[in-house]
């Protein structure tokens, strides 16, 4: 039986928005596909990080105040996330935990801390929180290494729905590929503080996004692409599409899309749902 080994980083510490749902989505998909899901939780900041054994790394959003301690723990662990990502390793980082993988985070009190630098981006804490729905279209890209089966990234071309609680903005370097185009919601910011119509960042199969929901539970087709990428990397051949019924999820996505297409929004928020 094939096995999907999921490394769940600090689920108690990085635990803001029902992120357990992402793990439930992955394990259910694996079950439907006839794959054994093996979940390793790294709970304490002194625990080892068995990255070499991971097929998928899941990182949920946490309080910004906790990020320096988590970054220090990851650095102490000796886990080489850069090598993991460069080798096509699959990793999903959501919400404020972008601070873990960015180069630097600047807080409102002007203090800064360095991240792991896995993506060429900075994080800037916002003066006020912004919460809203977020609907994305995942970008096709040829950036990053090709996967074992010729797939270059976790997936491309999907429309994904969820929401965002933006405590901080992601500011990409010019060289850094975004994850998606925004159909509805608040995108990344430029270093000058202006909005963009792109969202998140990607490096190979590392996806950094503000899409919450939990994103994988709301978009199982997206979760499946992650599972597929991870298993293809591991076993060298793609899995057959699982016989799963995603009717409810598709109805939910359609209802949220309809709702956002016409609702009152605030300045700076992208809304291309009418045109998309």
């Amino acid at each position: 039986m094939k096995e999907l080994r999921i490394l769940w980083l600090y689920p108690d510490i990085l635990n803001l928005h029902g992120d357990r749902g992402n793990l439930l989505a992955l394990t259910r998909l694996a079950e439907v596909a006839g794959v054994r899901a093996d979940v390793t939780r790294v709970t304490r900041l002194t625990d080892p990080v068995p990255l070499a054994e991971a097929d998928f790394v899941l990182v949920g959003p946490g309080e910004l105040v906790a990020m320096p301690a988590v970054i220090a723990a990851l650095e102490r662990s000796g886990a080489d996330f850069g090598a993991y990502v460069d080798a096509g390793g699959v990793m999903l980082v959501t919400g404020t935990s972008a601070a873990l993988v960015a180069r630097e985070t600047r807080r409102q009190d002007a203090t800064t801390f360095a991240g792991l630098g896995l993506v060429a981006a900075d994080v800037v804490e916002r003066a006020t929180v912004y919460g809203d729905d977020l609907i994305l279209r995942v970008r096709r890209t040829t950036a990053g290494p090709a996967g074992p089966a010729g797939r270059d990234t976790a997936d491309s071309g999907h429309e994904l729905g969820g929401f965002q609680i933006r405590m901080a903005d992601l500011v990409l370097e010019e060289s850094q590929a975004p994850f998606a185009d925004v159909l509805y919601g608040l995108g990344n910011r430029t270093s000058a503080g202006t909005g963009t119509d792109t969202e998140g960042a990607r490096r190979g199969n590392l996806i950094v996004t503000n899409l919450l929901g939990p994103a994988l539970a709301k978009n199982p087709w997206y979760a499946w692409d992650f599972v597929q990428s991870a298993l293809t990397r591991k076993y060298g051949e793609p899995m057959a599409h699982p016989a799963a019924d995603w009717t409810l999820e598709r109805q939910g996505a359609a209802a949220i899309r309809r709702f956002n297409a016409t609702k009152a929004t605030v300045p700076g928020v992208v809304n291309r749902l009418g045109a998309a």
Binding site: Y10, R20, L24, V39, A69
Partner: peptide
């Protein structure tokens, strides 16, 4: 329940 979680320590931010 599946995959219970606790929270971060408000003092040192490790697992409580």
């Amino acid at each position: 329940w599946d995959e219970p979680v606790t929270m971060a320590c408000p003092r040192c931010h490790d697992q409580l």
